[in-house]
Design a protein around this nucleic acid. Structure first.
Length: 566
RNA sequence: GCGCUUGUAGCUCAGCAGGAUAGAGCGACCGCCUCCUAAGCGGUAGGUCAUCGGUUCGAUUCCGAUCAAGCGCACCA
């Protein structure tokens, strides 16, 4: 299956004593141009040991090498270029995909190990913004990727459902809010109160005092405070669920910050027992000087705990509950230091699994170059972006394919798919400035482009079936024309891409791959007629089927639907 | 000031853990629907790979310095 191994094997036969198979594997490369073959071995590194010109070495290798299973092997300058036997190779790839279907690319990297993923984690009483989208879709895609390589992902929505902001919210609600208003439009009203609070507390600092008082009451179990908190939480969650439904994301746990309230005392006592807690400026800290980090603030001057205390409790809870092999946190890169501290404190606590904790950071979304801020009221509401995208998809369908059935369903899949794909197609760490037209674009390197390619493939298969052509999936179909070869090499690369995406925690690898495969396929069927009744017809159909399968699976790994028609 | 991240065509980004003339999309310009959905395909124009050094037979890729941008730097999360 892996063509690369074939090349390494024959090279090792010739170079065995001079270069190990491992070394050959390292230097073997893929030429940029298919005209230079499928693989290339650069002879430079033998020049020194053999005291010969690399050109000459390349020529000698070609003379000695076993060419049996290759179309040809030739020396071009200092390179040995390998051309795979297209018939053999295409038969191997196509039959593998036809047999394995959507499990093509599955691997056992994880041995079934548990991997909790901390993702999405919006704050109660605030709307889900574009910033949360990143964490949500990256986490969701990583979960699907991890599952594909036999890990067991556990998606945890670590809700921001506790903290001093609830004091502010309660105070603001008591001052300006009403039950009817909130019931009618919970998130927006609650946000309105919150923003107003931050506007007014500049001139009226006594508001902060009151807010602190409310939060204290909340912590002490005051009936009214608890009632309001629960109400805000459930209303918020309801509206979050609507968005998650649109995105097609589900969670295994909604244990948020409040869940750990009763689990922090243990952390503090462990730290005390290990003599790690120190007093500094009235607060209690863990000194992390030896890690070159700022001290971790465990308790504020007033005795209240902080973010990191909660995260320590959560980390320990997750280890105990899931006995994870890795624990992931899909959180913005501005929190890099926090996670370094978290790992360092766990290490100080003597927990060796602190090394299994990985922060998966991602870049910032800005608007007009400025950071989004709920307090400043500068938010891009995800819900609105999704609705806009679906609306545009509807218009697109009316213009391009007005007779389509399930228009509404397809519009949702395409619109939402565009938004998700846009977020995943570039490396996580890149920042991007929000631009609605860019996000909901349907042409070029976009989700809809990949979806469209898949729909076209399905359309060809449908038509073939109507004409009475049925594929036998046990048959060995092979193609040896140069037009299909580029598509075949892309399909063959899929398992490697899955692995890379997992190892790098980088969904963009799959998004980029999907674009490449789609592009190769679009080019292919634009230049070769598939439904032509000749002896290669079934082989071409098998190729189209393989493409459709891998495109759909790629999109699936990103959390994007692949409609059969669009 | 210190730390992290980033710096490739007008714009948005690739470049697979150093190699053969630096790629794609968008935008601009020009072609292609009596032919499997033109959300497509083809072509032209556009780059001293931030700068300067170093390692190497070879550097956009590795190392160092400089410059620029973003983020962070204990009582928010």
């Amino acid at each position: 299956m892996e063509f690369r191994d074939q090349v390494i094997r024959v090279l090792a036969e010739v170079l065995g004593d001079k270069l190990s198979a491992e070394k050959i594997k390292q230097v073997l490369e893929k030429p940029k141009d298919l005209a230079l073959g499928d693989y290339a071995f650069p002879a430079f590194l033998l020049a020194k040991t053999l005291h010969k010109a690399p050109q000459q070495i390349a020529a000698e290798i070609v003379q000695k090498i076993n060419q049996e299973h290759f179309e040809k092997i030739q020396a071009v300058g200092p390179y040995v270029n390998f051309f795979m036997d297209k018939s053999q190779a295409s038969a191997a790839v196509i039959s593998t995909v036809l047999r394995q279907q959507f499990s093509y690319g599955d691997q056992d990297l994880g041995k079934g190990g548990n991997v909790p993923i901390d993702m999405s984690s919006p704050n109660i009483a605030k709307p889900i913004s574009m910033g949360h989208l990143r964490s949500t879709v990256i986490g969701n895609s990583l979960a699907k990727l991890l599952k594909k390589v036999n890990y067991h992902p556990i998606k945890i929505n670590h809700l921001g459902d506790w903290g001093t902001q609830f004091g502010k919210l309660i105070e603001a609600y008591k001052l300006w809010g009403s039950e009817e208003e909130v019931k009618a439009d919970p998130i927006n009203k609650l946000l309105e109160y919150y923003v107003r609070f931050h506007k007014e507390d500049v001139a009226h600092p006594e508001l902060d005092e009151k807010a602190r008082g409310w939060f204290k009451k909340l912590e002490d179990g005051d009936e009214e405070a608890i009632r309001l908190w629960k109400w805000f939480r459930s209303e918020s969650l309801k509206s979050f669920m609507k968005i998650y439904e649109k995105l097609g994301v589900e969670f295994d746990s909604f244990n948020g910050e409040a869940f750990y309230n009763d689990k922090m005392a243990e952390i503090v006592s462990i730290l005390e027992k290990r003599d790690l807690l120190k007093e500094s400026r009235g607060a209690q800290i863990v000194d992390l000087d030896k890690y070159d980090l700022n001290p971790a603030l465990i308790r504020k001057t007033d005795g209240a705990t902080l973010y990191i205390t909660r995260d320590l409790a959560a980390a320990l809870y997750r280890k105990r509950t899931y006995n994870f092999v890795q624990s992931l946190y899909v959180v913005g890169n501005e929190q890099t230091n926090h996670f370094k501290q978290l790992k360092a404190v766990l290490k100080e606590m003597g927990e060796p699994w602190s090394d299994d904790i990985h922060h998966i950071p991602f870049g910032l979304i800005t608007q007009d170059g400025k950071k989004l801020s709920t307090r400043a009221g500068r938010v891009i509401l995800l819900d609105e972006v999704l609705d806009d995208a679906v609306q545009l998809a509807r218009k697109q369908i009316e213009a391009k394919n007005p007779n389509l059935e399930n228009k509404e369903q397809v519009a949702k899949e395409v619109g939402v798919g565009a938004v998700i794909f846009h977020d995943l197609k570039n490396e996580r760490m890149n920042n991007f400035d929000f631009n609605l037209e860019e996000v909901v674009r349907f042409e070029g390197e976009t989700g809809p482009y990949v979806q469209y390619s898949h729909a076209r493939a399905m359309s060809i298969l449908r038509k073939a079936k109507e004409e009475g052509h049925v594929l036998n999936e046990q048959e060995n179909y092979s193609l040896n024309d140069p037009e299909s070869w580029e598509v075949i090499t892309e399909i063959a690369a899929f398992p490697k891409m899955v692995k890379r995406a997992v190892v790098e925690y980088e969904p963009s690898v799959i998004a980029k791959y999907g674009l490449h495969l789609a592009k190769a396929f679009n080019k292919y069927y634009a230049h070769s007629k598939v439904l032509k009744d000749d002896e290669q017809l079934y082989a071409r159909l098998a190729l189209v089927k393989s493409v459709a399968t891998v495109l759909k699976e790629s999109l699936n790994l990103l959390g994007v639907h692949a409609p059969d028609k669009m």
